[in-house]
């Protein structure tokens, strides 16, 4: 384990790149969702599998980095509260959650959903009932915010002064 390589690879199962991209997207949606909304969606999920904690929900901090000048070398901007959780389903699949905030219940639901989504047999249904609504809500909210910002954009018109 001494050196930078061993530790990380020992922890991970091999995963195809498109699988990684899909997982990143659903994990991002789970982070974005509010606790209340996710709980409601979770309540509607049938046949919840048995699961136990590999790592019980835990609150901590992640140091957030910025870039000097916005585009330069990194610097430490300040921390953000993060809650993480890892579960292992009865079928052996492991799910993780890393989410801003201090909500342990949300992290637990998210880790369980992350594990369940890795099962191709369940993915289509879960995507339709849990993730599609979240995806649409996020897009709608972003668009509404952008539309309001866009309304405050200055449309310059030039006034002619003096004589040519």
């Amino acid at each position: 384990m001494n050196g930078d390589t061993g530790a990380a690879t020992a922890l991970r199962d091999a995963q195809a790149p498109e699988e990684t991209a899909a997982r990143q997207e659903w994990m991002a949606l789970l982070s974005w969702a509010t606790t209340a909304r996710l709980s409601t969606l979770w309540d509607g999920v049938p046949d919840k599998p048995g699961a136990r904690f590999l790592r019980a929900p835990e609150c901590g901090l992640v140091m957030t980095q910025g870039r000097i000048g916005g585009t330069g070398s990194p610097f430490n901007l300040g921390e953000i509260t993060v809650t993480r959780c890892s579960v292992i389903l009865d079928n052996g699949t492991v799910g993780h959650a890393y989410q801003a905030g201090r909500d342990k219940a949300k992290a637990e639901i998210s880790a369980t959903l992350d594990a369940m989504m890795q099962d191709p047999a369940r993915r289509v249904d879960l995507d339709r009932t849990v993730f599609q609504p979240l995806r649409a809500e996020r897009a709608r909210k972003d668009a509404a915010r952008a539309a309001k910002a866009a309304a405050t954009k200055v449309d310059f018109f030039t006034m002619v002064r003096g004589e040519d």
Binding site: L61, V62, M63, R67, R145
Partner: peptide, 30 residues
Amino acid sequence: RTTLPRFGTSKPVETGKMRLERRISATFKD
């Protein structure tokens, strides 16, 4: 914050990809 463990460090945030709500320049009109 001193009571919380630190899990690690984020990737640098990319403010060039910011979802803007305000952006002004006092030096370049256009």
